[in-house]
Amino acid sequence: MSTLGQKAWWTLPENFQSPLVFYMEEDLEKHVFGQGDKYLRSIELHSHTLIQLEPWFTATGQTRVIVVGPPRARKWLLSMIRSLGSRDWCYQNQGLEMLWRVRSQPLTSQELIATTIVESDTLGLSLAVRMSGGISGFPSPIAWLF
């Protein structure tokens, strides 16, 4: 995502403004990041983000996820997680492909641009990604399509 002459993403203050904050079910968290967060570091490296996972002691075992990094990378990760949590098998397959991709190699600019966001009404209840007041700085789901 960076080329010669461009600063590294972590040196740009705008990549740390309005972090993406959402909650995900424990089962989905383990599916994405692996047992003991085995894949967390590779997902961070390949998506050019920093991800913080905070288990919450709730009846459903949710994890609060905080993501900082370039806006397109945050959007891509949100799309992947929403796709994986969808009830629609087509979106689930898309999410699995995205998950395999981000675990195995760095994302390209083309992949980040081509991301589509799964609408929240297609998410399954058991693996739903729950947004905490929307994405910081964006008051409605329509803004997620930026």
Rank of each mutant, 00 (worst) to 15 (best):
S104H: 10
Y39R: 07
P71S: 11
T116W: 05
G34P: 08
L77I: 04
T11W: 02
P55C: 01
D121I: 12
S136I: 08
V65K: 01
V129E: 00
T49G: 02
L107D: 05
R74V: 07
Q105M: 15
K75G: 02
P70C: 02
I135N: 03
Q35S: 10
E111W: 00
Y23H: 04
D88E: 11
L78F: 15
R72H: 14
Q105L: 14
F22E: 03
S47M: 15
R130H: 00
E111A: 01
L123E: 10
W56C: 11
E111D: 10
N15Q: 08
W9C: 05
Y91S: 13
S140T: 11
L28G: 00
L12A: 10
S79V: 12
M131F: 03
W9T: 05
T122S: 14
L125M: 11
P55K: 09
D37V: 02
T122K: 15
H31M: 11
P71C: 07
R74H: 02
Q94H: 07
R87P: 00
D88V: 11
T49I: 12
L45E: 14
L123N: 05
L50G: 02
L40H: 01
W89D: 05
T58S: 14
S47H: 13
V67E: 01
T115R: 03
W10R: 14
R101Q: 11
L53S: 12
T63G: 01
G133A: 03
I51L: 02
F138W: 05
F138T: 07
Q62F: 04
E111T: 00
C90N: 14
A128C: 08
D27T: 13
I113V: 13
N93F: 15
M24K: 04
L45Y: 11
G124A: 13
W10C: 12
V102W: 13
S86E: 02
T58Y: 07
